[in-house]
Each structure stands twice: as structure tokens, then as C-alpha cells.
Simulated assay, not measured.
Amino acid sequence: MSKKILKIKFYKYHGNGNDFIMIDNLNGTCDELSKTDVKLLCDRNFGIGSDGLILICKSENLDFEMKFFNPDASSSFCGNGARCAVAFAQFLGINNQKFKFSAFDGTHEAFLSDKKVTISIQDVQEVKEINGDVFVLNTGSPHYISYDSSLLDDFVEQARKIRHSASFLPEGINVNVVSEIDKKTLKIKTFERGVENETLACGTGIVASALSYLYKNNIHGNSSIHVISAGGELLVQTDYSKNKGFENIYLTGNAELIFEGVFDV
């Protein structure tokens, strides 16, 4: 018997060039979407093409559940994906301006103002300093932050070696190179695991870069850091103290619909 073909409506969103396939799964239609399906849909040559796929699912106690898949079908939290998910949830009429939703790493809050979406990030208590220029921390996904500009030479190849290095096996790690433009502005380049390439932006990497900068420079209290990636600028806000670490972390930026369509599975 031949497999039944389902026609699935999708929407393509991006947050600072970080692009995602968004699917309304409130009725559970795509619960059985396979890893093979996810990989094909995210493929830029044979599928729709994206940095990830997101299902908006029903939640009993919150506005929605966000299920995120990398192009290799692995799961993690995705900051820009979460911002796009909130914009999509508003489009679906789930709520208007304020949201609470669950994701891979727990519950998040979000709100919209004009075209900008702000999401909360889980508190970060630990920043591991490898040396004065390299830091490792988890902002919903693990990140290697380096202030060594020599990594920009043949960036993808050098980042891939770090991502697969023995120190970070078996899960691997996202790799970021950060530079200071001024005391309130950073520039970042990111290699994302799961995508296995450089991306135009990475929300959790941008948050990790801002937190590492505050930690590195011993800057306490409330801070707002602008971080510029190849895809544009995002704002990170947080409170930092040595006793409590990083609290009240928020990520803000645009999230926009690009196009919509239908695919068969």
C-alpha cells in the first residue's frame, strides 16, 4: 500500500537572516513528521531550505509549545527561532502582545512591540573561562566564545574543528568569534552545530557573546548590549552580579514573514 500524501501548509520566517520553516501543528497533524522529512525540508537544494524547522504545538498551561529542529533533525533551544515562533503565534491568533511558551530548555516569556519581538532567556549562573579570550557557556544551547580574531581566517574550517573537538564531544558546540566595536556594541560571527556552517545570525550565540563580554570586563548591574551579525543587529539586556550570575536576560530584534507555501509528505 502506498504512503498517504499529506499536504502541509508552511510559512517561512527570518530573524536577522536566521531563517525557519514554521508549521501550525496545533491540531497535531505533523506529530509524526520524521527526521528524514525534517532534513529534506531544511535542505537548501532539495527542500524548502532553512536554518531549522519549528512546530507550533498546543500547550495545556501556556500559550503554545515550540518544537525546534536543526537541519540535521537534532533538537535544542533556538533564540531567533523562538522570536519567529512568537511572531508566527501572533499571526495564528494565539495571543496578541504577550506570550508564555515552552521550548527545549523550559518556559519563556515574550512580547511584541511594532515589528520587534523580545523573548526571555533562562538565567545563566556559570561562565567557564578557558583563558582571557575564550569562554564557554550555555544560553539554551552551548557556545564557545572567542575574542581571538585569528579564527576569522578560514573561519568555517577552524570553527568546525572546535565544534568537533574532543573537549566538546559527543554533543559538540556552537562556535563564535566576537570583537568589541565600543562599550555597548559587539560584532559576531557564528558557526552553528546542527546547521554545520556559518549562519547570518544566532540568537543564543548573540546572548552568549554579550554575557561573556560583561563577564570578561567585570561589568555588573543592568546592561544593554547591541550585537551585530551578518544578518543585522540584536539587543541583549541583562542583570549581572557575581553572586547570582546573569538574570533577567532578554533578546530583542525583528522577526518577519518571508513567504508561505505547501509541501507534500
Rank of each mutant, 00 (worst) to 15 (best):
A110V: 07
P142M: 02
A103M: 06
F46Y: 13
G47A: 10
R163S: 10
K161M: 13
N95W: 02
I54A: 04
F69H: 01
I48R: 10
Q90P: 00
E171K: 15
A89V: 05
R163M: 10
G47Y: 12
L40R: 11
A103R: 06
E157T: 12
G106K: 11
L62Y: 14
V86F: 01
E109H: 13
V124I: 15
A103V: 07
S146F: 02
N95P: 00
V86L: 02
A87L: 05
R44W: 02
E60S: 12
N96M: 07
D153T: 13
V134K: 15
E171F: 03
N95H: 08
L169P: 00
N138D: 15
C78T: 07
G52L: 08
L151R: 07
G79L: 06
E126M: 08
S167C: 01
A82F: 03
G49H: 09
N174H: 06
L55C: 03
R160I: 03
I173F: 06
A166T: 10
I94M: 00
S34K: 12
D133S: 08
N96A: 04
K67Q: 14
G106P: 12
E126I: 14
V124C: 06
E126V: 14
F155A: 07
N138H: 13
P142E: 07
G93T: 06
D37H: 14
F155Q: 09
D72F: 01
F101S: 04
Q158D: 03
K35E: 10
K115T: 14
F101T: 04
A166G: 00
D37Q: 11
I56H: 14
C84V: 03
I119Y: 05
D154T: 01
K116T: 07
Q90E: 09
A110N: 10
K35N: 14
D51Q: 14
I162D: 04
K98N: 12
S165Q: 11
N45A: 04
L169R: 15
A85W: 01
Y147L: 03
S113D: 15
F64V: 04
R163C: 14
D148R: 14
I162H: 11
S150T: 15
A82R: 02
L151A: 07
C78A: 10
G140N: 02
P170H: 10
D154Q: 13
E65R: 11
Q125S: 11
V127I: 15
A166Q: 14
R44D: 03
K35V: 00
A85R: 02
G140M: 01
V38P: 01
S75A: 09
C57G: 00
F64L: 06
A73C: 05
Q158M: 04
D37A: 10
D51A: 14
Q125D: 11
K100E: 10
L33E: 00
T36E: 13
S120L: 02
G47D: 11
S150R: 15
S141R: 05
I48Y: 09
Q122M: 08
V156G: 04
F77K: 08
L53R: 10
R163L: 02
C78E: 08
D123M: 00
S76K: 09
D114L: 08
G47C: 13
N138A: 02
D37N: 15
A85M: 02
N61P: 00
F111Q: 12
D123P: 12
G93Y: 06
C57T: 09
H164S: 13
M66V: 10
K35C: 04
